[in-house]
Amino acid sequence: MGFDFDVILSKQDQLISGIAMTIFVWVVGTLLAALIGFIVATARRYGGVLVDKALTVPIEVIRGTPFLVQLFLLYFGGPYIGLSLDALPAGLLALSVYGAAYFAEIFRAGYQSVPPGHVEAAECLGFTRIQIIRNILLPEMALLVIPPSVNMAIILLKETALLSLITVPEMTMTASAIGSQEYAFVEAMVLIALVYWVLVELAGLLGRFAEKKLSRYRLAKA
């Protein structure tokens, strides 16, 4: 026994491209998830009772089933209903939709946190609905939605590892491949575990920083 990290590090080009792919699917997937989640929450708020009720079903189904099963259903089942996607777009789509269900709940709570009177005041002054969302609701809910959003982003980063199971060449897949070739699987896993850990800690740090910047004007919440 004895661990040899040098053989892994000698494949740094492959590793770096794997890390880059992980960061790419993570960032794009999280942004898409937040965007879709925001649109869903907005539709639920303004679309009437029926839309609100109808949208709870997919949200609860996505939140109640494992991401792995959703991913396999889309990637392996998709072609049977005319949805043949390559691994990367399938992975991105699955990740975005999965995250969107959670972001929809985060933004719903955000919308609910804004006192109705603040919206009424803007309505009386002639703000359009879009102006109210952009200038009143979003900035007011920002402080509340940032911590859970950062948390969700971190969860999504960890979920990107599952994309290796449908052959997206992100870092878990790259490291597994190198590890098997070089008979140094454990070393490869330890190395990428450290990379994930650093990314998670960085994301948390960034989130706390944003929270601090935003809270400066809410010393005593009125």
Binding site: P115, E120, E140
Partner: peptide
């Protein structure tokens, strides 16, 4: 003008 002022806190 509202009872609860409804100023925008941000």
């Amino acid at each position: 003008v509202f009872q609860q002022f409804n100023l925008w806190p941000h």
